[in-house]
């Protein structure tokens, strides 16, 4: 039982040390994962190997992606009103707050049943990634097309009527003639 709590505790100690000894060491001291395999879209796309370390270095501040949950003050003044000193959260992974099944009845009912939830307009997991990733990728000129990050699989090609499932060129020409 106790074992489960050690990593969280370690993280808190590290965070405390970071806060105490300055920010220069944040990126190296964080014990976040080096890489995360994102495969929520596995039905249509291959997995995305997200290089967490590289993105941590680029972002410089955990709050860019993790809001207030890693204990760094949130960047948005609206968030800071409540979360300036809320400290690190128990869970910092995106999916612990951003539901993978955002619009299924189970989640909607949960929201409806608890009137103490403030963040009712909280993005689902897929949108949390895309809003964050694409926002920065656009600003920084990083690759931003669907297939720059996602390799579409055969099932995906089928749904998009692309690749070997692409309509014959004549289909379009015929329609243009109308």
């Amino acid at each position: 039982m106790q074992m489960d709590h050690i990593p969280k505790l370690t993280m808190r100690i590290i965070l405390a040390m970071v806060l105490a000894f300055g920010t220069a060491q944040i990126s190296s001291a964080m014990d976040g994962p080096d890489a995360v395999e994102l495969n929520a879209l596995a039905e249509l796309y291959g997995p995305v190997n997200f290089d967490h370390t590289m993105h941590t270095d680029i972002a410089g501040d955990c709050a860019v992606c993790h809001h207030h949950t890693t204990g760094t003050p949130p960047q948005d003044p609206r968030c800071a009103k409540c979360h300036a000193k809320s400290g690190p959260a128990d869970e910092v992974a995106c999916q612990s707050c951003h539901a993978a099944k955002r619009f299924e009845a189970e989640y909607l009912n949960k929201l409806a049943a608890d009137n103490t939830i403030y963040h009712v307009d909280r993005l689902g997991l897929k949108a949390a990634y895309h809003q964050r990733c694409m926002g920065c990728h656009e600003e920084s000129g990083a690759p931003n097309g669907c297939q720059d990050c996602h390799t579409r699989n055969d099932a995906g090609d089928k749904v998009f009527h692309a690749g070997q499932y692409a309509p014959p060129p004549s289909a379009h020409k015929a329609k243009e003639g109308h």
Partner: peptide, 24 residues
Amino acid sequence: VGCRSCEAACNKEQGLPAPDLPFD
């Protein structure tokens, strides 16, 4: 972002005819 994923999903869900051009 105009990715047309919604159009592709609708096409599949509703069993609509193949489009003239791919959804991408």
